[in-house]
């Protein structure tokens, strides 16, 4: 989970210098003791972040500029930026198709999930038993990716449910996951299917925060449902839409568990994405340097796209 967009709170802690100002006599000793106690409370978390956050980041950065076979830490061989240039060299598959696949996968997922959740959320808002509907749409989110991936993989088989439906409609079977042209869209559908529930949740909350008086005023002015949706619902839903967009895009750019389960990147490299390539370079080919370099390139892409989205939505906000 990436939570950079978690709702910000504005409560401010009392300023620490006030504690320092009273650092005389008994009060000072009490303050000092509280500081020691505070760091004792924080010690497990800080220790963890040192070993599992700071150290790995440094290690990954070092590896991204080294060649290493993975056994003796003394054998790490610095190679400068070779791993990075190797990723973008002629004949490298990293830019196309892998990075392209990654973007298409994320883009497709966001488009499908956004369209689906917007449609369902605006409709659910008018219905009874909203809790029941939400529960149903939420089931995929609490289900392990191994279950989701295997059930859908099986459903895409020639003898599976999807082709069963196609055949019943008089259409021919499609080898969804075996055909390089359909494999990526097929996986995108599953990723969108699995994430639409949480998008509905966020959009429903956004819809509920729009004051009913706006709709009443629009109705008095004789606005049709289309105008109401375009002029009131959509603009006021912008923060929720931004939230869904950014977080879904982040997830789409990073996730590869579903692809490992369903296609392992195949057929060929039709569904190979950057995070999966990183994983394979490291754990199948033992090329830790290239894997680490790929991870940092992907991180940069993720960061750039997120910032771009925030910037676009903010600019649109000023124009309106």
């Amino acid at each position: 989970m990436v939570n950079t967009l978690a709702p910000e709170t504005t409560e401010r802690a009392p300023h620490p210098t006030r504690a320092a100002a009273g650092a005389l006599g008994g009060r000072g000793r009490a303050r000092r003791r509280q500081a020691v106690v505070a760091y004792l409370f924080l010690a497990p978390a800080l220790l963890f972040f040192a070993v599992f956050l700071a150290l790995p980041l440094g290690f990954a950065l070092l590896l991204s500029m080294s060649r290493w076979t993975g056994f003796d830490l003394g054998d790490i061989d610095p190679v400068g930026l070779d791993n990075f240039t190797g990723l973008f060299a002629d004949g490298s598959t990293f830019l196309t198709p892998i990075l392209t696949n990654t973007l298409l996968f994320a883009l497709g997922t966001v488009a499908l999930a956004l369209a689906g959740s917007l449609l369902v959320a605006t409709c659910i808002d008018k219905l009874r038993f909203q809790g029941l509907w939400r529960t149903l749409y939420f089931l995929p989110i609490v289900t392990t990716v191994v279950a989701v991936g295997n059930v859908w993989k099986y459903m895409y088989e020639p003898g599976g449910l999807v082709n069963g439906v196609l055949n019943a409609l008089g259409l021919g079977s499609v080898a969804f996951l075996q055909d390089p042209d359909t494999a990526l869209p097929a996986v995108v559908v599953v990723q969108a299917w699995a994430s639409v529930g949480s998008a509905i949740l966020v959009l429903t909350a956004g819809l509920k925060s729009i004051p009913g008086s706006y709709y009443e005023a629009a109705a008095l002015d004789g606005a049709g449902p289309g105008t109401v949706f375009l002029r009131i619902t959509l603009p006021l839903l912008r923060p929720a839409l931004l939230f869904v967009c950014v977080t879904q895009f982040l997830t789409g750019l990073q996730s590869f568990a579903l692809i490992i389960v369903m296609t392992k990147g195949g057929p060929g490299d039709a569904t190979d994405v950057a995070a999966l390539e990183m994983y394979r370079q490291a754990f199948s080919h033992g090329d830790w340097g290239t894997a680490s370099a790929a991870a940092f390139v992907l991180f940069t892409v993720v960061l750039a796209i997120t910032l771009a989205q925030l910037w676009i939505f903010r600019r649109k906000g000023e124009d309106a």
């Binding site: 989970m1 939570n3 620490p16 509280q34 500081a35 505070a38 790995p56 992907l298």
Partner: peptide, 24 residues
């Protein structure tokens, strides 16, 4: 609790959420 470095530690905790899992 009040202690020196609290704001820094809090910001550090927030920043840990920024890094995607595949980096690790």
């Amino acid at each position: 609790l009040r202690f020196p470095g609290r704001d820094f530690v809090f910001r550090l905790v927030l920043s840990t959420m920024m890094f995607p899992p595949f980096l690790f």
